[in-house]
């Protein structure tokens, strides 16, 4: 049976974080049937590669692949996942350290049905009292984070993740959007886009994710649909843009240089509002 949604989840050295992410994408947590959603984890050369058997208890339609040509950038791993995906709607989860809210998959599926050529973007959050590049400099760490998750008794009510996290977008749901960790496009749009651009070969892919969002919303006739009421929540794991202010600035500065070299113009955020789909009310603001 062909699933309705395929999720490509990229993993690299996420032994602590990936189990929570996959639990948050599991059928029970997402309240969907296992056969409706396939999860394709593509590991990008972790020293200890994730083992599908260890996630058998999730009862998910889950496979774990190893990228055939791993590199510092996740772009190749994503593209290999896109080739394997079977569903008509495909979500790319560039950072396997991000947990989901409980209605994310169903909501993105519903949002995708609002338009013939939808670009469905979810909003990014970071666990903790501030953006992690700031909170990590103030002592926030994995132990703090474990305590926070315990404090809301996660995964009992996954929506409580909003209580212990910080939105990445300062301008709110309609504000400037640099990237979306969980970006859902119909398969034909991924094909038109050519997947992720593997020229972004720097560690972490540099700004390959912002580039993908920019290119996606620039495709002819597409409709950007921002999903609110759901989100992805970053667990701290030493990522380059979340460990310190200095490293975050460096990532953006270097990323912009790469972007200018490849695209011939400065990196920008996506400022178009698009449509807003609120999972809590089902309301669509066009």
């Amino acid at each position: 049976m062909t699933p309705q949604v395929s999720l490509i989840v990229i993993s690299y050295e996420m032994k602590r974080e990936l189990p929570r992410t996959l639990l948050s994408l599991s059928p029970r947590y997402q309240n969907c049937a296992a056969e409706d959603c396939e999860i394709i984890v593509v590991d990008n050369n972790s020293r200890e590669r994730p083992d599908a058997a260890s996630f058998a208890g999730l009862n998910a339609n889950l496979q774990v692949l190893s990228c055939s040509q791993p590199s510092q950038s996740p772009a190749r791993a994503i593209n290999e996942g896109l080739v394997r995906a079977r569903a008509s709607l495909i979500g790319v989860w560039i950072d396997g350290a991000r947990m989901a809210s409980p209605g994310l998959i169903k909501t993105c599926l519903a949002a995708s049905r609002l338009h013939e050529r939808p670009v469905v973007a979810t909003l990014n959050y970071q666990l903790g009292p501030n953006l992690q590049r700031i909170s990590c400099e103030q002592g926030y760490n994995q132990a703090t984070e474990d305590g926070l998750l315990d404090s809301i008794d996660w995964p009992k009510d996954g929506y409580r993740l909003f209580e212990i996290s910080t939105p990445e977008m300062k301008g709110g749901p309609t504000g400037a959007m640099l990237e979306s960790n969980a970006l859902f496009l119909p398969r034909p749009l991924w094909e038109e886009l050519g997947g992720y651009d593997e020229q972004f070969s720097e560690p972490g892919g540099s700004v390959v994710n912002p580039d993908t969002l920019i290119r996606a919303v620039a495709l002819p006739g597409v409709q950007l649909i921002r999903v609110v009421g759901e989100g992805t929540f970053h667990q701290v794991h030493g990522g380059m843009s979340t460990s310190s202010q200095k490293s975050a600035i460096n990532v953006v500065m270097e990323g912009n240089r790469t972007y200018m070299r490849l695209r011939g113009k400065p990196l920008t955020q996506v400022r178009q509002h698009g449509w807003i789909f609120d999972s809590r009310t089902g309301e669509v603001i066009r």
Partner: peptide, 24 residues
């Protein structure tokens, strides 16, 4: 509505444009 991300990007573009170092 110019946020911190765009300020950092602007610093990088300014560096390229004027061939100077800019601390965001």
């Amino acid at each position: 509505g110019l946020d911190s991300v765009e300020a950092v990007i602007m610093a990088g573009v300014m560096e390229e444009e004027f061939q100077v170092l800019v601390d965001p």
